[in-house]
Design a protein around this nucleic acid. Structure first.
Lengths: 341, 341
DNA sequence: ATGAAAGCGCTAACAG
DNA sequence: CTGTTAGCGCTTTCAT
């Protein structure tokens, strides 16, 4: 095993070429005050000697880590994956590394992760927080470390948010169903609290209100986004009287399960009951009928959040001016809701 | 905006308490030679002053970054997500951060990412490489930076691999179909080269050989894992004469598309044609018939890779002894293949 | 039990 | 165009 044959430093290079370390440093950083010729000599011997700059010595001087920290409340999810992909793309393009911490649904871990990133001195933070207070992020804002929240729009001390317009999403889906002639529209959601789900629900009833349709409390059905709970919810929906003529589900999996249960009970989708999902998961294209759904711009949100952060870090200080960036989602109309034309 | 009100250093703490910086340093690192009383005084004022240790000064001294680099060839994928989740869990448990770089299918980016991590001096690397040479990882092995490959078993200079036993997977799936009475079994795969797909194919024909069934070349169908290509492949399968009585697809999406096409053509699954997928994606539980598939232990693989790496970094040098860790995958039998009992 | 001093590798004034 | 010098904040002998 070839072991660490000792790291090469700029001193080694300087000695070898009979130059000073600072000359070497400048040359390696493309300082224009170094003659082309020496610069070339230096870069070449550096490469030859297997030199790599010491990231930490550099950071120690420059007080910057070229690293952005990403805290997600659930890494293993269909939303988080494209978000990370979007962030990574923009970050690496801007010369930043992305360090990821997963809170795995635990608030305690989220607090820990914030602390850990603070210690690590990331240059900026993007967080997809779970529910609850955001106070554990205060050290960042206090120290001027820029902070962007994703998918959560609470205003929080000097921070910025990137969200999809969930109210608009809910409205779009519901209006579409109304246009298709539906009147008794169920909203199936994991919860209608103070978060994206609540906003989708708000969009739902705003759409009903606009069309002068009374919102019935019994048409709001709460169910965890698991297969079992969704099945139970579907049965609950069929037990309502009169039977609803549409379901707007807050995620595609729940919508798919509902459709299956409806079909097994002999109902036709969309003729007897129309269904709209949320999230544009791959399953929506594979099932029959294909699923009408909201295309949630997760990757674009990640990309945007990273760009805002990096622009700010590079001194194009958007972050102080923009408070919330709302990304446009779109309705993807497929078979499960099309009752006309 | 509260701006950087100047970072607190151990010197500030020392001055405030009329102690020396080294005492403060030791106290903060729980050095037992510092009396309990002073230690307490120090930790308390440190907290009070909002001190955070300077990660970089620390690293500069200790020549370690407490960071492991993860290079994936495709971040936005159903395999990578649980892998990252597994790595993150083990890493954070061991006190390490995880920095992620996505090669997004580009070899060039993969090479860049390797270089970038080398510069950043990650303590260790986990790579899920694409196809092709692994030479760009040589700097790590040369410098004694431990390196673990995931889902790819090439032996490479002093590195270690964590894989699922893909040959066994292919064999398991195929034997199961044979036991169900199938004889003309198609293997549908994105390619049977020198990678996991090739190994699954190897398992397929080994199973056939063991059962004395002739492997026909026409039963190997190559198709990209997209919806369109899978549909075309399904039609191709139905055009074979005699029509096959089973399909073993190398991913669940392709299997789902096949089943849909078969059903649309009036075939019954599994009675007329049985189908086994690969990957245990969520869709397999939602569709009808439910999909028999291989449960690929992605998260466990990530977890294992990270543990091996971290054990090594902490001096429990497994990495030199273990060359390849093969994780057990399992067959999940559901409706799409069950023709007996 | 505490302190003094050296140095990790690099950069940025400033001087030549 | 190149060199000198002085730290960045921390840890770690070695003294006391």
């Amino acid at each position: 095993m070839m072991e660490n044959s000792k790291e090469v430093t700029i001193y080694d290079i300087a000695q070898r070429l009979d130059l000073s370390p600072s000359t070497v440093s400048k040359a390696l950083n493309d300082d224009p005050t170094i003659s082309k010729k020496t610069r070339k000599r230096i870069t070449e011997t550096a490469a030859g000697m297997g030199y790599r700059s010491n990231f930490f010595a550099k950071n120690l001087r420059q007080q910057s880590t070229l690293t952005i920290g990403v805290i997600v409340h659930e890494l293993n999810s269909g939303f988080t994956t494209p978000v990370l992909s979007g962030i990574e793309g923009a970050a690496s393009e801007g010369g930043y590394g992305m360090i990821v911490a997963d809170s795995a649904g635990s608030r305690e871990k989220e607090v820990d992760n914030a602390r850990s990133f603070f210690q690590r001195r990331v240059d900026g933070v993007i967080a997809v927080p779970g529910a609850g207070s955001l106070e554990h992020f205060r050290p960042f804002t206090d120290r001027g470390v820029p902070l962007v929240f994703l998918d959560r729009a609470d205003s929080f001390a000097g921070s910025t948010s990137v969200v999809a317009d969930n109210v608009a999403c809910g409205m779009m889906a519901t209006l579409h169903l109304i246009e298709q002639g539906c009147r008794r529209i169920v909203h199936l959601t994991p919860g209608a609290g103070d978060n994206v789900y609540g906003q989708r629900y708000e969009g739902y009833w705003k759409a009903l209100a606009r069309k002068k349709i009374a919102a019935e409390k019994s048409l709001l059905i709460i169910a965890e986004p698991t297969e079992e709970a969704s099945e139970a919810a579907a049965r609950k929906i069929l037990a309502l009287t009169p039977v609803p003529d549409a379901v707007f589900a807050a995620n595609d999996m729940a919508a798919a399960v509902c459709i299956r249960v409806f079909q097994e009970r002999g109902l036709r989708v969309p003729q007897d009951i129309a269904v709209v999902g949320f999230g544009n998961e791959i399953i929506g294209k594979l099932m029959r009928p294909t699923l009408t759904t909201i295309n949630y711009p997760a990757k674009e949100m990640g990309d945007t959040a990273a760009r805002i952060l990096i622009n700010h870090l590079q001194g194009n200080g958007e972050i102080d001016k923009v408070t919330t960036t709302s990304m446009r989602a779109e309705l993807v109309v497929r078979q499960s809701s099309l009752r006309k034309g």
